[in-house]
Amino acid sequence: MVSLVAHNLSLIRAGKLLLDDISLSARGAGSIAIIGPNGAGKSTLLKTFAGLLYPSAGAVALGDQALQHVPADERARTIGYMPQHFAPHWDIRVRDLLRISVERVGTAAAAVRVDEVLTTHAIGDFANRWWSTLSGGESARILLAMVTAIDPPILLADEPAAALDPLYRLDMIERIAKRGRTGICIAVMHDIDLAFRFFDRIVMMKNGQVVADGSAAELFETSHLEETFGVRFLRSKIDNVRFAGIGWPTGSPSAKQVAVVGARSTVGIVKAAPL
């Protein structure tokens, strides 16, 4: 059973405490969304999980081994990391991009495995497209296909849908959260509504610390969201699906403000409209 565990993780960069004594464990399977205000340390935590940053104190364990001591090729097989921004230095065809990706576990039958990835991810039409010609939504899909081409049991995704249109965003988040059924998937999320809707577990961070960690259903009902973000949220459930939308700043709003806000309509992403 695959597991990724942080023990009392702290990280200091340029004299600033970015992660402050974080303990977090993910075992077996499940989808985890990390949410929190800007500068909370979400991306830093994810990079530390990916082995891109070394903790100043504490440790990350992959299975029963400290992450630093896991051989690089085994780490590459086990953990897929989807960065927030990805741009290859050379313009490259999608097929070649996938080829580099599958070859991290060996060069045997690489071309065949690339074809399989093109089929399973339904991106065959893009095989011969150059990266520079892809739209934001398309490149996000290709990036996910590339990172998960070898089906790593752990997927780390840093704001995977931040710059996408609603349709692509919904699609991308569903695809990523789905990986939590068979493995571990940890995503830094900006869309709080989608985090509560699609992920099993929510980790809230603020000032480099984990301030709340629990199932999405549980945390949906508490005031942790308000305490973490400093705004009130509008909550609703439609067909048993949770929605948490941004309401108004915390503190006691004047009756007038509430009236104004209450009179406004809000729009959230619900589901892809039938085409």
Partner: peptide, 18 residues
Amino acid sequence: PGLDKLGLGEAMASTFGM
């Protein structure tokens, strides 16, 4: 092969086991 990985950026190359 290493130069190809490096062409994806240092972070990606590193998570690809380099």
